[in-house]
């Protein structure tokens, strides 16, 4: 199939960028979206041009690196997928596809489609952990946890930190990500000692990074490749209030 790509090219964070148009005459529908970029980059390198910088790692939907805003949607037209799991059969012969980087002041552009998501790391460093003294490993079943709580915590822990929630949110809010990282610990007994401090510190770090506020549009939940639920945002809203009252 023939695909025309309009790709955002930007040398670095300081110089302004613009769209470049590339035509690929022979794209296989079994290719993933990233494989199409591999083919394009191969061609650019052969012609002695600068290849397009984009993030990727696992290419199986679990690392969260492959950030691309495709035709107006984070990770493209499908819901619940990453870019590496998006295949060209979901496009039509002759399509023009617009590809942009995640856009948020908290995610500065490094080059082309690559953005710096270390703001997420700093939010986690602010409180997304459990402090335990090291020693002998404790038996895994020594603390009983209700199955339902364990399942909910596991659902929150499925977040891969891809940033699609921020990219898709009209306010560039990180509430879905932060609430997943708060919830995965708030739901477990091991997370209780630091529960109040954690939510306060992580929300403070989130605000400091310059993410927007939550309008509850719900777009993040729809576009999240791991199906992280708005339930976690509600839990964080509750926990934050409680922590400010008791702590």
């Amino acid at each position: 199939m023939k695909i025309t790509l309009k790709v955002w090219r930007q040398k670095n964070g300081k110089t302004p960028g613009n769209f470049n148009t590339y035509t690929l005459p022979d794209v296989s529908e079994d290719m993933s979206f990233l494989e199409m970029f591999d083919v394009l980059n191969d061609e650019l390198i052969r012609k002695g041009e600068d290849s397009i910088a984009f993030d990727h790692d696992c290419r199986e939907g679990i690392c969260g690196m492959c950030s691309m805003y495709i035709n107006g949607r984070a990770h493209g037209p499908l819901t619940g997928t990453t870019t590496c799991q998006l295949h060209m059969r979901h496009f039509k012969d002759g399509d023009t596809i617009v590809v942009e980087p995640w856009r948020a002041s908290a995610f500065p552009i490094i080059k082309d489609l690559m953005v710096d998501r270390s703001a997420f790391d700093r939010v986690i460093q602010a409180g997304g952990f459990i402090s335990v003294n090291t020693g002998n490993a404790v038996d895994a079943n020594s603390i009983p946890i209700p199955k339902e709580d364990a399942d909910k915590a596991f659902d929150a822990a499925a977040c891969i930190g891809c940033g699609a929630c921020v990219a898709t949110c009209k306010n560039a809010s990180a509430m879905l990500f932060v609430s997943a990282k708060v919830s995965q610990l708030a739901l477990l007994p091991q997370g209780q000692p630091e529960r109040n401090m954690r939510v306060k510190k992580m929300v403070e770090a989130m605000d400091e990074e310059g993410f927007g506020n939550c309008t509850n549009t719900g777009a993040c939940e729809v576009e999240c490749p791991k199906g992280i639920s708005l339930d976690h945002i509600a839990r964080m809203n509750r926990d934050y209030l409680v922590s400010n009252i008791v702590d």
Partner: peptide
Amino acid sequence: NRKARPQGYAKVDQSKSSSWSSR
């Protein structure tokens, strides 16, 4: 919220993920 995204997207398609009112 505007400040959190100083440069917008050239192409945005939010109709499939959120209601018009909420936006």
